[in-house]
Design a protein around this nucleic acid. Structure first.
Length: 324
DNA sequence: GTCTCATG
DNA sequence: CATGAGACA
């Protein structure tokens, strides 16, 4: 979900060119959910293969990778590992929302209310473990590297950005800031949404606070580890509290404050990863998309050709060793 | 070239 | 979400 900082966070509008020849770490779960909720048929239901399995996610991964490679951006997909204990409550909460949406969807369907069907279908976005596994398979077939984070994917992305191994974290929410990511990029898409860059230094400078303050603000507003935060406190009041050194008055009423803070300040991350692109396996990729998941051949052929073309271009630019 | 729209 | 087609210019 992400902390609801809203428009308190200053962002810079950039162009795709600014990301040229850069490597970015993708907060995979965040983006995968994005695909799941937005890639839908008219009635609001997700894309599915003939076995009824959801394929919206594969569609998104396939096209977004090609889009980025085409623009000389190297994507590294980072997946979640074992979530911190405190996240369980969040998961239960989300599950409840989805169950309720499912009920609403069913009743809208009974009424034949298409508008409501769309509305509620979009909330039923549960990412099956199998879909996540297949997403990794798809990345392998495309030659795109992915990393299994030990814990939160966002923390791993941020760590890599801090180290300078990647230029920025790609996510739609602002939580990477809390893990100290120097840059977060939003809206890498072919649609005409403005591409946004959020810089940690800019954020702290504009608000005139420290990273520690920002984390405290997040905890006041509410994070994945203390949903809802402190009652009655939003971004504005939170900023006022940390700026006027009044955090101490709230800490005692926040359950697990120290534990939550520690999750952001010292997350579990790994140094074991490779950022190298590999050669795609076009034949197997075809099978995965067309045979296994019923993508229309006519439709993906131009993109497959594009992928091959990009690979050949890269091969001619780099030595064989650095490519493989 | 740029935009909107329907489609998967 | 990305794509292609079609409108418009």
């Amino acid at each position: 979900m992400g902390v609801q900082f809203n428009d308190l966070i200053p962002k810079k509008e950039i162009s795709l060119k600014d990301l040229k020849n850069k490597t970015v770490a993708i907060d995979s779960m965040n983006i995968l959910y994005q695909f799941l909720s937005s890639i839908r048929l008219r009635d609001g239901s997700p894309l599915r293969n003939s076995k009824g399995e959801i394929t919206s996610t594969y569609n998104g991964i396939f096209y977004k990778n090609i889009y980025m490679l085409e623009n000389d951006i190297t994507p590294i997909w980072v997946f979640d590992g074992k979530p911190p204990e405190l996240k369980h409550k969040t998961r239960e909460e989300r599950k409840k929302v989805k169950e309720k949406a499912m009920e609403e969807y069913i009743s809208a369907k009974e009424e034949g209310n298409l508008e409501d069907m769309q509305k509620y279908a979009k909330r039923i976005n549960y990412l099956e473990p199998k879909v996540v596994e297949n997403s990794k398979r798809l990345l392998n077939l495309m030659g795109i590297p992915f990393i299994n984070a030990p814990s939160e994917g966002e923390a791993q992305c941020s760590y890599m950005a801090k180290k300078g191994d990647v230029y920025a974290v790609v996510s739609q929410d602002y939580d990477a800031l809390l893990y100290g990511a120097p840059r977060t990029v939003r809206n890498i898409t072919a649609s005409n949404k403005p591409l946004e860059l959020i810089e940690l230094d800019e954020v702290l400078g504009a608000l005139n606070i420290t990273l520690d303050n920002l984390i405290d603000m997040a905890i006041l507003i509410g994070t994945d580890y203390n949903i809802g935060g402190v009652k009655g406190i939003g971004p504005k009041k939170a900023l006022d509290i940390v700026k006027n050194n009044k955090m101490g008055e709230y800490i005692k009423n926040i359950e697990n404050y120290e534990v939550i803070k520690n999750i952001f300040k010292h997350p579990k991350v790994t140094d074991e990863y490779s950022l190298k692109l590999g050669a795609p396996n076009i034949e197997e990729l075809r099978k995965f998309l067309i045979d296994e998941n019923n993508f229309s051949e006519n439709r993906i052929l131009p993109s497959l050709k594009k992928l091959e073309k990009i690979v050949n271009k890269k091969k001619s630019q780099t030595t064989i060793e650095s490519w493989f």
